[in-house]
Design a protein around this nucleic acid. Structure first.
Length: 630
DNA sequence: TTAGGGTTAG
């Protein structure tokens, strides 16, 4: 809407004009009817409003004899029954009503009217024009302040960020007091849309505009920074708030704790816990959820259960979130018995299981190969009135794929699509990896190509899977092309992607290229892990370079990585083949001591030069130590 | 007015 049309709205004709006088009469009549009998007469006799126009509407709404709530009823009636007269309430009617509602301090209702202005394409106008409307009405500064505050909030709620910023700037320029709570609504709206950078810039603007800053907005900023991965910066912000005399609270600490937990940063986690202890901030159920997740992720199931017990002992009531985490970690560690016990417990405590809990349980039973149990859980879930969502469908598909039951997985996918869920990158990837498992590489590729043909962009995981397939086929040229293509398309390779390629090159004998990729991933800020090292060790070993393999092995241990069964097996097999039995057995002992189980192949390779007649099983039972010592 | 949970790739 232009200034021109706004001027027309407010260019009120003097009362002297005979037409206006009759408008006044009509409006007075309408107001009287409303006052005495409410909205009903207009419902039964719509002709009472046959002469209505925007001017009369304005006069009715601004009639001080009519209480604000009656104005609101009239306004809503007009909005809901546009067919009764030629036009819906215009911008002027909205602003007039806002003024009346302010008189009655009906802020929630005012917000609703602002929402109409902001969302109705016919009413939207520039902030300057909108504010000029009320300024021309010579309103009290307090009203202008409230008007701007609500407008700012409504723009924020509707994600009209630039407009919201316009109001903020106007308020600052005009010296109006800006409420931190409204700024919080804006910060949260930005955060929900992942506009963290804008969030941060706005926070600085708040500081510059002398908006009162409390622990609330700082905690939101800390969370935004943590979610963006800038945990250090978030930590600094907390220090900054302490210097300014603002004390962090349970929310602030939990937010930072979450940042460190997600980053697997033990130093950070411990620091947060000791700060909480120092400040005597007691853990709540959120803290315990984070801590059970922390220990679960570190493979410390005993600690998970300890935390869960401590929570109960301290009288902190468990909720569905903490149960989901504890159940999920038990499922991931294969302890389904415990998971089912917890599942029964939560129902007894009156907690209603939701789709997240069922999701964790279904995944758990699938991981131990019990797809039948997954189907039962699914039925149970449906009996509870819970809808099967996309995540559950993907979990089930994965369960079938892991068992090599591709046809069943495809049936699930068909049902999922029939239910209106379009298969996405997760579903396609699950099917593709399922097909890889049974070595149907061409079909696996086809599924990922189909996904692209359906207009879905491949994500990092999809590209990694595709690269992995090419590597398995020995087609490193295609793998390299895909790697370049993904970068060109702006899809960032992660450590999985690098590891897949490193594995491919190592297996193919191009160890130089594998090392180059290891350097590249380090340059990109990714840390080579046990998989990177194992692939490289394998690459060196295949070509008989055992010394180089041992250097890598020692390097990975120095860096704090714990070798897995594959790492040990690769090295021990290589050493055995070279006849370096002492080193082979030393590593074997180390492997057993760290609780890893050797597979048949490994046993055979060792048995070969100790006692060729012994079976693998026999070797394990024969107290090998004695054999070596003798 | 601020914080936490389930699925996929090596």
């Amino acid at each position: 809407m232009t200034t021109q049309t706004l001027v027309q709205y407010f260019a009120k004709t003097p009362v002297r004009n005979p037409t206006s006088i009759s408008y006044k009469d009509i409006s007075t009549q309408i107001a009287k009817t409303l006052f005495n009998s409410g909205i009903e007469p207009f419902k039964t006799t719509p002709s009472l409003l046959s002469n209505l126009n925007s001017h009369i509407t304005h006069l009715v709404l601004s009639d001080t004899n009519l209480p604000p709530h009656a104005c609101l009823h009239f306004f809503n009636f007009l909005r809901q029954n546009p067919s009764l007269y030629s036009h819906r309430p215009d911008l002027q009617a909205h602003v007039t009503l806002i003024c009346r509602l302010y008189e009655a301090q009906k802020f929630a209702e005012m917000k609703k009217v602002f929402n109409y202005i902001v969302t109705d394409a016919n009413l939207r106008c520039s902030i300057v024009n909108l504010i000029s409307l009320i300024e021309s009405g010579n309103q009290q500064p307090k009203f202008v302040e409230k008007f701007c505050d609500l407008l700012f909030r409504v723009y924020a709620d509707n994600r009209l960020f630039e407009d919201a910023l316009g109001v903020f700037d106007y308020m600052e320029r005009s010296g109006l007091k800006i409420d931190e709570r409204s700024c919080i609504a804006f910060l949260l709206a930005l955060k929900r849309c992942d506009h963290i950078e804008m969030c941060f810039k706005f926070f600085r603007k708040m500081v510059d505009a002398n908006v009162e800053i409390t622990v609330y907005s700082i905690s939101i900023m800390i969370d935004g920074l943590c979610k963006r991965g800038d945990v250090e910066m978030a930590r600094d912000l907390m220090d900054e708030m302490v210097v300014k005399g603002i004390k962090p609270n349970l929310y602030t600490y939990n937010t930072l704790l979450n940042g460190f937990v997600k980053r697997k940063d033990a130093v950070g986690v411990n620091e947060m816990l000791s700060l909480m202890q120092r400040d005597q901030v007691a853990y709540n159920v959120v803290t315990y959820t984070l801590l059970t997740d922390w220990y679960g992720n570190s493979g410390k199931m005993v600690e998970v259960e300890k935390m869960f017990d401590e929570m109960h002992e301290r009288g902190v009531e468990a909720d569905v979130h903490v149960y989901t985490t504890v159940i999920s970690w038990n499922c991931k560690s294969g302890n389904m018995r415990r998971a089912f016990t917890l599942f029964d417990d939560l129902t007894e405590r009156g907690i209603v299981p939701n789709s997240h809990i069922y999701g964790a349980m279904i995944d758990g039973v699938c991981k131990v190969g019990q797809v039948e149990a997954a189907e039962m859980l699914l039925k149970d879930m449906q009996r509870q009135g819970l809808d099967v969502n996309e995540v559950i469908f993907n979990t089930l598909m994965n369960g079938y794929c892991k068992k090599g039951m591709i046809d069943e997985a495809l049936k699930v996918m068909a049902i999922m699509e029939k239910k209106g869920f379009e298969a996405g990158p997760f579903a396609y990837n699950t099917i593709a990896s399922g097909l890889c498992k049974v070595k149907r590489y061409n079909e696996a590729k086809k599924w990922l190509f189909t996904m692209m043909e359906r207009g879905l962009a491949l994500n990092t995981v999809n590209f990694s899977t595709l690269i992995g397939i090419c590597c398995k086929e020995g087609n490193l040229e295609e793998a390299k092309w895909l790697f370049e293509d993904m970068k060109m398309k702006g899809v960032k390779p992660n450590s999985f992607t690098y590891n897949t390629l490193i594995h491919g090159y190592s297996k193919k004998g191009n160890i130089k290229q594998a090392y180059r990729l290891k350097c590249k991933m380090e340059e990109m800020g990714m840390t080579p892990d046990v998989y990177t090292y194992t692939s490289l060790i394998h690459g060196e070993r295949v070509f008989g370079k055992l010394d180089e393999a041992m250097i890598l092995f020692n390097e990975m241990i120095e860096k704090g990585f714990i070798p897995n069964a594959v790492t040990y097996t690769t090295l021990i097999t290589g050493l055995s083949k070279e006849g370096r039995s002492d080193e082979a057995f030393r590593l074997y002992d180390e492997m057993i001591a760290s609780g890893l189980t050797p597979d048949d192949k490994l046993c055979s390779s060792l048995v070969a030069f100790i006692q060729p007649s012994l079976s693998c099983e026999g070797f394990l039972k024969s107290e090998r130590i004695n054999l070596i010592n003798s």
